[in-house]
Design a protein around this nucleic acid. Structure first.
Length: 378
DNA sequence: AAATCCGTGATGGTTACGTCA
DNA sequence: GTTGACGTAACCATCACGGAT
């Protein structure tokens, strides 16, 4: 069975700053060919064969209600615009050290361990732990669906690290590497089942570096997951689908937060720039008014020195001023100033008419050269 | 060793949307 | 064709754990 996943609407760039060349992403499925063995290898128990069957059944059976996972919602378009660039990607450098993994939505590499998706005979991951009992049967059926022991399993991943207060399910050594690996959520479930003291304390899962890096890469591929992708990813990482889902949710939220901070900073700078420009123009206006007061014949000044349209009160530094020269439109009644500058990056242009629209006046401004005035009298 | 900060996994509520009766 | 119930998934605010300082 091919894992040809429809990724939904790719047109919406959620995270523009993350956009990267698409072609690079296709390399992702290639590189993880290293066998990694961290910690004890705990082979999956036999009853998981049953779970696998459940899972595959879950995969193939039509869902009762809405199984059109790609079209049903518009709110979860898989963002294909977030594209990885392996060339300068530190995470990928990390991932070079990772076991052979490929994203489920990538075609498997030739010798890839993820040789086929959900029903494939070989897996990218030798499962070290038994996932927890179900809290949601359907989900758990999927969660438990990590492949049964496969001779083709190519590596063991540093998996769930979980610290069970009572009995130290998971610990990290001084370098943060997991050395006691079991299913993370199982611990919590056991706690729940035991109804022990720990039942009220939330257990904190820490994903391994490899899991995080892989999720990170997946996120760069698609910052949302459809259910198939979620399941496949969960399976590969030996996490529950819910955990993958939550990870993506949190990742999206925190990326958005970061972007918001960046945007805020940018707007702040824009505001400062505009404020400064406004101050400068006000000052210029005052100077012009002072000049007008002190010299009522200012209109007779050489045109090369100062011109001002008596109607629109637009001031230019000389009469031959063209549209390439910056100028200011001043409303003498309100003191409103509108700058005119050919530079498209001008903040005043970007924000339109912050001080109100220009007044209508009988002077004819040509559209392309607004300062070439034609007097009605002439 | 205790306090604090920070990153992050997890949870519950809300909202939007699709399907079905 | 419209409407309400229901399921699903995303988003959001928040909590809480645990490592770092």
């Amino acid at each position: 069975m091919e894992l040809g996943l429809s990724l939904g609407d790719s047109s919406r760039p959620l995270l523009g700053f993350m956009e990267k060349p698409r072609e690079a992403s296709n390399q992702l499925g290639l590189g993880f060919n290293t066998t990694l063995s961290i910690g004890p290898i705990i082979t999956r128990q036999k009853d998981q064969q049953h779970e696998q069957e459940e899972y595959e059944e879950e995969e193939t059976k039509p869902k009762s209600n809405n199984n059109n996972i790609n079209t049903r919602r518009t709110r979860d378009p898989n963002d294909l615009s977030s594209k990885p660039n392996n060339n300068n990607n530190p995470v990928l450098h990390q991932l070079d050290l990772l076991p052979q993994l490929s994203f489920p939505w990538h075609p498997p590499s030739e010798n890839g361990s993820f040789s086929s998706e959900l029903g494939g005979s070989s897996r990218g991951l030798d499962v070290n732990a038994q996932p927890p009992p179900a809290e949601d049967e359907a989900e758990e059926a999927a969660a438990l669906s990590s492949s049964p022991n496969s001779a083709a399993s190519s590596f063991q991943m540093d998996l769930c690290i979980y610290n069970n207060r009572g009995g130290s399910f998971y610990k990290r050594d001084s370098e943060g590497e997991a050395y006691d690996q079991r299913a993370s959520s199982r611990a919590s479930d056991e706690d729940e089942n035991n109804g022990g003291d720990a039942s009220n304390t939330r257990k904190k899962l820490r994903l391994s570096k490899e899991q995080s890096a892989f999720l990170e890469e997946s996120f760069k591929e698609h910052n949302t997951l459809n259910p198939k992708q979620k399941l496949a990813l969960a399976k590969q990482l030996n996490l529950r689908p819910r955990q993958v889902e939550v990870w993506f949710q949190n990742r999206r939220a925190r990326t958005k937060l970061k972007q918001t901070e960046v945007d805020c900073e940018y707007l702040k700078r824009c505001c400062e720039t505009l404020t400064e420009e406004n101050r400068r123009l006000h000052k210029e206006l005052q100077e012009l008014r002072a000049l007008k007061t002190s010299n009522p014949f200012y209109m007779q000044l050489p045109a090369t020195t100062l011109t001002m349209c008596p109607s629109c009160e637009r001031v230019a530094t000389n009469s031959t001023s063209t549209s390439s020269s910056p100028s200011a439109t001043i409303n003498a009644n309100t003191g409103a100033i509108k700058t005119s500058n050919n530079n498209n990056d001008s903040p005043s242009k970007a924000i339109g008419f912050p001080f109100g629209k220009p007044r209508f006046h009988p002077f004819v401004h040509t559209s392309q050269q607004p300062h070439q005035h034609q007097s009605p009298a002439s």
